[in-house]
Design a protein around this nucleic acid. Sequence first.
DNA 1: AGGTATATATAACAATCTTATATATAAGCC
DNA 2: GGCTTATATATAAGATTGTTATATATACCT
Lengths: 107, 107
Amino acid sequence: MSSKKELIKGTLRLIVLKLLSENTRMYGYEITQRVKELSGNQIELTFGALYPTLHKLESEKLIVSKTVVIDGRARKYYSLNKAGLDAAATEVADYFTFSKALNMVLS
Amino acid sequence: MSSKKELIKGTLRLIVLKLLSENTRMYGYEITQRVKELSGNQIELTFGALYPTLHKLESEKLIVSKTVVIDGRARKYYSLNKAGLDAAATEVADYFTFSKALNMVLS
DNA sequence: AGGTATATATAACAATCTTATATATAAGCC
DNA sequence: GGCTTATATATAAGATTGTTATATATACCT
C-alpha cells in the first residue's frame, strides 16, 4: 500500500502528529486517506505500520482515543493532548532542520 | 555519533550513493567526515550503520572496494560501477519526489 | 606514556516497517 | 440473493535498518 516504501521510515510518526495537530480528532482510516489526498496520491500508509504507531503515541501519552459507533461500525478517534501538541511542533521543526541539512549533502 | 537520529533512517544509503557518484573513490571514514562537513556539522553518521551499508551495496554489486595501505594504515576505497551510478541517480531522484510529497503533507 | 585522530569491523539490541491475515459492516451492482 | 468494493481496526511473522558497545591497530603530539 505504499509507493516510496523505504523512504517513509521515520516519517510516519511525524505525519500522524502533524495531521492531529491540525484536526481536533481523526481516526486511522481517515489519516491514510488524508495523507494520500494531501500528497497527490503519492504517499499511501500501510495499516500494519499506522496502528502500531497510533498505539505507541497513545502509550507515550501524547494522544488519547475514543471509540464511537457510526453507522453500526466502530470508529476510533484519536486526539492530541497538550504534550502531544508540543511534541508535534518540536518534531516537525526538527524534521525541517534535518531535511535542509540532508539537502545540503544531496545537492 | 548522530544528531537527528531517527530521521537518518532510510537516507544513509542515499547519502553514500550520492557522495560516491561525485567522487571516483572514497573510504568509510572519509564519508563520515564529508557528510559532517557538507551538512554543517548537523549529520554525523555512525560507523555501525555505515560499514554494513557499504557491505550491502557491495553485495548488491553497486560498488567495488579496493584496500590500500597508506602510512602503514589500511584504507578501503569504495567506487561505484555503472549499475551503481544508475542506482544513485534513480534513488536520489526518487528521494526528491518523495520529499516534495511529504512536504505537501507537513506544510 | 598517554591522549587524540585516523581507520575498519562485528555483535547485541532496539525500533520500525512490510506483508499477510483476521474480523466486520455498508453500499452498489448484477 | 450473492459478489465486490469501500470502510474500519488490529495483530503476528519476518525483514530491514539503525544505535551502542566493543575490538583492533597505527600515527602524531605532548
